[in-house]
Computed example of a mutant assay.
Amino acid sequence: MESLEKANQILAEFEKIANTNTAKSFDPKDGFKVGVDLGTSSIVLVVLDGKDQPLFGAFEFADVVRDGLVVNYQQSVQIVSRLKQQAEEVLGFPLTAASGAIPPGTVGNNKRVVANIIESADMAADQLVDEPTAAALLLGVSEGAVIDVGGGTTGISVFEKGQPILVVDEPTGGTHMTLVIAGYFQETIEEAEQRKRDISKERENFTIVRPVVQRMAEITRQALLRQPTEPLYVVGGAAYFKEFEGEFANYLQQEVYKPVYPQFVTPIGIAMSSHIIFPQEGE
Rank of each mutant, 00 (worst) to 15 (best):
H275V: 01
Y251Q: 10
L38A: 05
Q280W: 04
G35P: 11
D122I: 01
I10Q: 13
H176T: 14
V77H: 04
L11D: 06
E2C: 09
A23H: 02
E245I: 01
P104M: 02
H275T: 12
A23F: 04
G150N: 11
T220I: 04
S273T: 09
V141Y: 07
V70G: 08
P54H: 09
V70L: 10
A115N: 13
F26S: 09
Q186E: 13
L138W: 00
K196N: 10
T96A: 15
S273R: 09
K29F: 06
R226C: 00
E5G: 05
T133C: 12
Q163W: 02
I189G: 02
E230P: 00
A238Y: 02
P28V: 02
K196S: 04
S200Y: 05
A145G: 09
G57I: 03
F32S: 12
E193A: 14
Q74A: 13
L4P: 01
P94A: 14
E2R: 11
K33A: 11
I199M: 08
G282C: 14
F248K: 00
G57P: 03
N109W: 03
N110D: 14
T229L: 00
D30G: 01
S42N: 14
S76D: 07
A136W: 03
Y257S: 06
A97T: 04
N205V: 07
F185N: 13
Y233N: 08
D30L: 14
S157W: 00
Q227G: 01
G151T: 07
Y184R: 13
L95A: 12
T20R: 14
F206C: 13
G152L: 10
F241P: 05
T22M: 10
Q163L: 11
N250W: 04
G150R: 04
M123Q: 09
I102T: 14
M177F: 15
A98H: 05
I208T: 07
P267R: 09
P164R: 09
R226G: 00
G173R: 03
T22Y: 05
G162L: 13
I165S: 06
A271T: 01
V44R: 12
K258R: 15
M272L: 07
F61T: 11
V141W: 04
S200H: 11
V71D: 07
F59D: 09
Q78G: 01
Q127W: 05
E193V: 02
Q253T: 05
T133F: 12
S25I: 11
V71M: 08
R82G: 10
E89V: 02
R221G: 01
A23N: 02
L11C: 12
E190A: 11
E218A: 10
